[in-house]
Write a protein that binds this DNA or RNA. Sequence first.
DNA 1: TCTGGGGTCCTAGGACCC
DNA 2: TCTGGGGTCCTAGGACCC
Length: 426
Amino acid sequence: MNNRTKFALVDCNNFYASCERVFEPKLEGRPIVVLSNNDGCIIARSNEAKALGIKMGVPYFKLKNLITQNGVVVKSSNYPLYGDMSSRVMKVIGEYSPVQEVYSIDESFIDLMRLPLNLMDHMHSLRRRVKSWTGIPVCVGVGSTKVLAKLANRIAKKYPRFDGVFDIDDLSYERYCKLLKSVEVGDLWGIGRQSAKKLNRIGIHTSHDFYQSDVGVIETLLGVNGKKIYKELYGSSCIPIEAIPPARQQIVSSRSFGCDLKDFDELNQALTNLTRKAVNKLNNHQLATTTITVFIYTNPHKKDKPCFHLSKTVGMTTAIQDQSQIIPLVAQILRLIYKPGHSFYKGGLVLGNLTKNYQQQDLFSITQNSQIQTMARQKSNTIRSVNKRFNESIKYASELGNNRWLPRADFKSNRYTTSWTELLVI
DNA sequence: TCTGGGGTCCTAGGACCC
DNA sequence: TCTGGGGTCCTAGGACCC
């Protein structure tokens, strides 16, 4: 292994389940599952739940019996809580290296090059501090590439004797090969189900088979990404750490509805709410959009009914960022794709082709009245600041209605850290 | 009855240009 | 009979991640 690069992957253990435990310590030692939006699928499990054989991504309703029989604690997902806990964890991790990439809500890569200290001590200290300052348990995988750090993290999680920190570069060649033989190729970071299937077809089953193959074969089969993963297994770093997140390309806002919707106004009510969320995100990032996609889907799991994926993308000559422009536009697009008589179970929108929101004027626009534009700008700024202070109290009329579309969340915990009315009571 | 959401990147193919 | 080569841009779909 070379020593030109050194990375750690810090990964929270069963993150969502652990967040729930921080504020409900009596759940310690008990099996917990966290459900996706609309209480649909199981998206997080504590170790005890994993031990019961509960798999990731399984629909909740299929496991209801197993869950009640075994006293499994069920939680609806609580993203305000998880997001806030995540930023606390990331902040602590950031104190352990000058270069940090926040890779996902529960994972962070850090660059360990040129740190003048004992790396293992440093990582054990990180682990202890995250746990003691946030309550969240993490494991640390260390390696000379990101793919290796990921692999190392697996080992750190799997074998308690490493006390949550494992450096894969410490292995001898023989032990490294033995490790690769024990990991299925589809478990490598970047090799998904489809690629694993292709590899299996030519006799590559374990990571060691992959490691021993010809790089040309891998590139032909999987493209440049496969080649990168291959080289990273040999310790050659091809996937750099991204300390500065790349500019966002699109903003998606979609939901499965609490119940199937047929009525246009009900769909429009849901879409208006989702649009407002998307526009808030757009404004928070100070971005503007020039393409809007609206989509509504019927339920593909209902085999007795035809399945519709209705969608339409509209492009604009001028980038827009104002909810008073985007919300009516979404309603217009919805009107174009809507078909009466069908039951839609899910819908949403994509704001695409995002740009920095400085005002690029359209040379041919007929609304080039600067006074009108200034007033519109003032209005939207006012609405935004009122909504920020008074909890989204100004809404479009199209958003008001029977709220039948609202996703189910029957097992929600409090937003302990982001809402004054939901603080932990002792 | 009940099946998540939000991202990115790559590739193939079509349309178009000279 | 013989029917080029090189390039860009866009879009849709597939694959991957958490």
